[in-house]
Amino acid sequence: TEKEKEVKRLAKERGLSPDQVRELAQRAGFSPDQAKQIADEFA
């Protein structure tokens, strides 16, 4: 999704850790499970 792409782009730009990616995703409105899946891509 657009929102997911945006979260991943920000995460890459900022060099976020997987935990930070998960927090960012949840703040963007993703469920905890979705946020974990997104964060796992950065693990």
Rank of each mutant, 00 (worst) to 15 (best):
E41Q: 10
S31L: 07
T1C: 12
P32F: 05
D19Q: 13
E4S: 14
S17K: 09
E4G: 11
D19E: 14
D33Y: 03
R9T: 04
F42V: 13
R22V: 15
T1M: 14
V7P: 00
R22H: 09
R14C: 15
K36W: 13
K12M: 06
Q20C: 12
E23K: 06
E23T: 05
E23I: 11
E41R: 07
L16A: 04
F30L: 07
D33K: 11
S31V: 03
P18G: 10
A25D: 01
L10R: 12
S31G: 10
Q37N: 09
R14H: 15
F30P: 00
I38D: 01
K36Y: 09
L24I: 07
Q26D: 05
K12G: 09
K12P: 04
R22D: 07
R14N: 14
K12W: 08
D19G: 08
Q26S: 10
P18F: 12
R27H: 12
L16I: 03
L24F: 05
E6W: 15
P18I: 12
G29E: 01
K3G: 09
E4M: 15
G15K: 09
A25C: 08
E2G: 10
K8P: 04
A11K: 00
R9N: 09
D40W: 09
Q20N: 04
R14I: 13
G29L: 00
A25Q: 01
Q34I: 12
P18C: 05
T1K: 14
I38L: 09
E2K: 09
K5S: 11
D40S: 08
K8Q: 05
R9E: 08
D33E: 15
Q34C: 06
Q26M: 14
A28H: 14
T1N: 13
L24D: 02
G15F: 06
E6I: 12
A11L: 02
A39G: 05
R27T: 13
F30W: 04
E41M: 08
G29W: 00
S31I: 02
S31A: 08
F42K: 02
K8M: 05
T1V: 13
K8L: 10
E23R: 09
D33T: 13
D40T: 07
R14E: 13
Q37W: 05
K3W: 12
D33G: 10
A39N: 01
D33I: 12
S17F: 06
K3P: 07
R14D: 10
A28E: 12
A28F: 15
K8S: 03
T1D: 13
L16E: 01
K8W: 03
A25F: 02
A25I: 03
Q34Y: 10
Q26V: 15
D40F: 07
I38K: 00
D40E: 14
A28D: 04
E6D: 08
D19N: 10
K5H: 09
P18N: 07
V21D: 02
A43Q: 11
T1G: 13
L10W: 03
K3Y: 08
L24A: 07
Q37K: 15
E2H: 10
S17P: 05
D40I: 11
